[in-house]
Design a protein around this nucleic acid. Sequence first.
DNA 1: ATGAAAGCGCTAACAA
DNA 2: TTGTTAGCGCTTTCAT
Lengths: 337, 337
Amino acid sequence: MPVSLKDVAARAGVSIKTVSNVVNNYPHVTPAMRARVQEAIDELGYRPNLTARHLRKGRTGIIALAVPELGNPYFAELATAVIDAAAEHEFTVLLDHTRGRREQEVLVSQGFRARVIDGLILSPLELEAEDLQGRSDDVPLVLLGEREYDTPHDHIAIDNVAAARAAVRHLLGRGRTRIAYLGARTDSANRPAHLRLVGWREELAAAGVPAPDDLVVPVGGWDRDDGARAMAGLLDSGVRPDAVFALNDLIAIGAMRVLHERGLRVPWDVAVVGFDDIAEGRFGAVSLTTVSPDKRAIARLAVGSLLRSLSGRGDPGGRTLTAEFRLVERESTLGRR
Amino acid sequence: MPVSLKDVAARAGVSIKTVSNVVNNYPHVTPAMRARVQEAIDELGYRPNLTARHLRKGRTGIIALAVPELGNPYFAELATAVIDAAAEHEFTVLLDHTRGRREQEVLVSQGFRARVIDGLILSPLELEAEDLQGRSDDVPLVLLGEREYDTPHDHIAIDNVAAARAAVRHLLGRGRTRIAYLGARTDSANRPAHLRLVGWREELAAAGVPAPDDLVVPVGGWDRDDGARAMAGLLDSGVRPDAVFALNDLIAIGAMRVLHERGLRVPWDVAVVGFDDIAEGRFGAVSLTTVSPDKRAIARLAVGSLLRSLSGRGDPGGRTLTAEFRLVERESTLGRR
DNA sequence: ATGAAAGCGCTAACAA
DNA sequence: TTGTTAGCGCTTTCAT
C-alpha cells in the first residue's frame, strides 16, 4: 500500500535517484524535471519511509530523555524544555521514566528500553558509576543533575553548593538562625541531597551560626508527602526551627501544608525555601521562595552536548557543563506585600 | 564498529539465518548449536539493530503521544500512565506537545513531527474535524479528551456532562446556590469547555436553581494564572458566588489563590471544585475537591485501541470508549476536619 | 535443523 | 544533470 521511491520513479518515468534528488532538495536538478517528479509525488501521495532512511544513514533523529518521574513538575518542565531544544535541531524525544530505581536506570543507560535512539539524556538518582562501566558506547550519553560521576560522559548541572548557600544566606538575611534542612538521605554520601546539605553547612559556618544535627532532617523520597512526613516528624520531636530549606519544591510544599495544619504561619513563624522553581510554587496560598535552575539552559546544554558527540568531533567527554540559577524571593520568606 | 548478524555468523562458523534463529528464539535449533552461537554473540557483544528489524517488519515499536502541554500536571500524569501502558506491550512512547495550537495539532496528526511511529495518541484542543480529513491513514490515530469528532478514529473520554453534574450536585448538596462556572470559552461552541458547561446547566436546571449568565465566566487559557484572572475579574465586577466549579484543577487553584488574597475563606465563603485530580490539589493550604478521571484506564484504553488497529483486525474505528471518573471530596468543599 | 538468497526503502558512490 | 547499482542489517521464503 505505501508508496515508495520506486513507485514515484515509475510514474514520472525517471530513475529512483532523480526522485531521491528531488525529495532531498539536491540542487542540481532542472526545474522542469523537479516539477515533473513533484507532480508524481503529489499524485501518489508519496511520503519517505524514515526507517529506511535511518537504516541507511545510521541515525534515527530520536533522542531519549529518561527522568525519574514525570509526575514531578520539575521533570515535566525540564522535559518540555528538552523537547523544544531537540526540535530546534529537528530531533524528537522519546521519553522514559525510571521511578528513581537503580535497576531501571541501568536498563535505560544500557539502552534496553529503547534501542532506536541516537543519544540519551539521563537524570539519574540511584545509578552508580560502576553501572556505567559495562556500557557499550555506541549511543552517546549525557548525565543530568547533581551527582558527580567519574565517567567519560558530559554532565549538566548547576552549582548546587552555591545555590544552597544562596538560599541559606537569604534566610540568614531575614534574621533566621535555626534553619532546618529537609532532604538529607541516610543511605549514601553522594546522593543528590548531599551537595545541598554541604552548602547549608558551609553557609551556616561562614555566618558563625550553629548547625546542630537535629536540624538535618532525612526524607524518605522526593514528593510532597515525604516533605509533609518529615516536617511532622521534626515538629513532633519537639524541634522548633524558624526556617526550613528543602531539597526541592515538592518537599517544601508538603512541609508548608503541615506547618499550616499545625497553625504555624509562613513566613512569620517559619520561613520556607524550596528548590526547582516549579510553577506550583507561585500559586499556593503562600507563594514559595525557591532556587530557580535555568531549565532551558540545562536542556540546551544537554541537547548540544549530545549533538556534538553525534557529529563525533573527537569529543573528549567527561566535562561538567554548568547552568545558571537564581534565587526567586516570594512570600514564604518575605511575607505578603 | 557495530557488530552485525554477519559478524556473529562468521565467528560461529554458521549461517546468518542460524544466528537469527537463536536471537529470535526460534524453537527448532539444537541446544548445541544454540550454545555455540550464543557464545559468539556474547564474545562479540552483539546487539540487534532495531532499525533494520523495523524496516523489515514495517513496525517500529514506538507510539507517539501528543498533548497540549506537559507543564500541565494532568497531562504529565497521563503521559506517565501511557508510558506504563505502552511498556506492558513492549512499546515505547515518543512525546510531543502542541501548546494547544491548531497548526501544531494538524502537523502532529499528519505525522510531520515524528514519522517513525506505529501509532499516535493525540489530545487535541483546537483541532477541527476537517483537519483530520486530509490525513493519510497509514498511522492509526486515537483521540483523547472531551471533543467529539465525526471521524473514523477511536475516541477516549469520560462522560463529561455526568462528571460536571456530579460536581455541581455536590455543591448544591452543600447548600450552595450561586455556583459560578469558571472555564467558558467564547470562541466556539464545541470547545473542550462546552460539555462541562452543559453539565453545569443541566444540574442547576434539574434542581430548579437559577443559572444566570453572569455566573458563566470565560477563561483565556487553562493555567493557574488564567483562573486567577477570571476569578479576580468576576469579583471585580461585583458578582459574589458562593461556589466555583472550574474547568480544571489549575484554574481552580488560581481562583483559590485570588479568593485567599481577597480574604474570602474557602469553603466557608466560597466553595471550590476542580477537575482532573492532579496531585497538586491534595497539598495546598486548602485541599481541592475535584472530579478524578481514571487516568490509568484512559491510558490503557488508548494504547489498547491503537494496538488493535495495528493488528488490523478489520477495525471499524470511530468508537467512543469511556473511562470512569469519581468525585473526590476534600477541604475546598468540606472544610477542615 | 540449517543454509542461500531475496528484498524491505532508502542513500551514495560511481558512471554516463 | 541523471541513471545504475551496491548495500545498510535484518527477516523470511524456499531449499536442502
